[in-house]
């Protein structure tokens, strides 16, 4: 299961193209290829290098090319760098973590949690921006490929951005699919639950798209049931939400299901068990408890499910 984004330290290997610099440079690509062959780790710690232009200026797009290039290209590059720096990559880490937490909570909770409208909106717009950026830079790359301006570093940067988008898209998909699976299994329950909420403007349990999906899905399902077998049954057995006879037919999430949790707030939390026992949850502790007891704490974020 995915979790936080563990960080490790890296040490960048310098590209030692000091002496090749004079000969450059419309086949930058080839030099890079060559260099990457020359660079083996065996002699890496021993060589003395004057660091050359950075491999990356940022996770933005463009490496610092050497000044031999004409002004024109430099201008474009600068433009691009500004564009590339504009998307707040720093904030992304935070966003990413929020998304992971939301996804995990949703995945481990037995019931549907309120839809994270704000978070989703932000993530979706940022993905869109990044994708646009990617498209733009591919265009840029294509039109400049013959001229040899595009180094392999440039491609690498595109690749990294692409990977990042993929990672976030995966989290998003997982989040939404989990929600849909829950909606599917407890359809009638959630139709009743969310009946009055569209207009009231409070924290919505479902997003508009999800609500639409739920109603349509239910309609199709009911139709299928009716045509295939319910129509042939006596009419008092035809109800899908029969509650007579002491047994309800509406499937509801099992809130007593035990869940794995971790406490993230500083204050210890005291839970009262049904046998009048008290259980104190301290920070960073890992426990398995019934979902019903910690439901509220999950919603305010003092406890995360794992």
């Amino acid at each position: 299961m995915i979790s936080h984004n563990p960080s490790v330290s890296t040490q960048t290997i310098p590209q030692q193209n000091q002496h090749t610099k004079s000969k450059k440079n419309f086949n930058n690509c080839n030099i890079h290829k060559l260099l990457s062959k020359i660079h083996t780790h065996d002699f890496f710690p021993n060589i003395k290098i004057t660091p050359v232009p950075h491999i990356f200026s940022s996770l933005g797009l463009i490496t610092n090319f050497s000044p031999q290039y004409t002004m024109e290209i430099d201008d474009i590059l600068q433009d691009f760098e500004q564009q590339a720096r504009a998307p707040p990559i720093k904030r992304d880490a935070d966003l990413n973590q929020q998304l992971v937490a939301a996804m995990l909570n949703e995945r481990m909770a037995p019931e549907l949690l309120p839809y994270k409208t704000e978070l989703m909106d932000r993530v979706l717009t940022e993905i869109q921006q990044q994708q646009q950026l990617l498209l733009d830079s591919y265009e840029y790359g294509d039109s400049n490929a013959e001229a040899g301006v595009i180094s392999s570093d440039f491609k690498l940067q595109l690749m990294i951005i692409e990977t990042d988008i993929e990672r976030i898209a995966y989290l998003l998909r997982l989040y939404i699919r989990t929600r849909l699976a829950k909606i599917d299994s407890f359809t009638i329950y959630y139709i009743n639950e969310s009946a009055g909420e569209g207009s009231s403007g409070g924290i919505a349990l479902l997003s508009p798209a999800e609500r639409l999906y739920m109603h349509k899905h239910f309609k199709i399902l009911t139709q299928l049931y009716n045509t295939s077998f319910l129509g042939k049954l006596p009419s008092f057995l035809q109800l899908l939400d029969d509650t007579t006879g002491g047994e309800t037919m509406i499937a509801t999430p099992n809130l007593d299901q035990p869940v794995f949790i971790r406490v993230v707030c500083d204050e210890p939390i005291v839970l009262t068990m049904d046998g009048d026992d008290e259980l104190t949850l301290t920070k960073n502790g890992i426990y398995v408890v019934r979902y019903r007891l910690i439901k509220l704490y999950v919603q305010i974020g003092d406890i995360v499910l794992i």
């Binding site: 563990p6 960080s7 890296t10 960048t12 660091p51 950075h54 690498l156």
Partner: peptide
């Protein structure tokens, strides 16, 4: 994402490090 310079230690997310590696 901090800028990466030769021979300088930087902290990056694991997946980026793996790609670079």
């Amino acid at each position: 994402m901090p800028s990466l310079k030769p021979l300088k230690r930087t902290e990056v997310p694991l997946w980026t490090a793996i790609i670079l590696k």
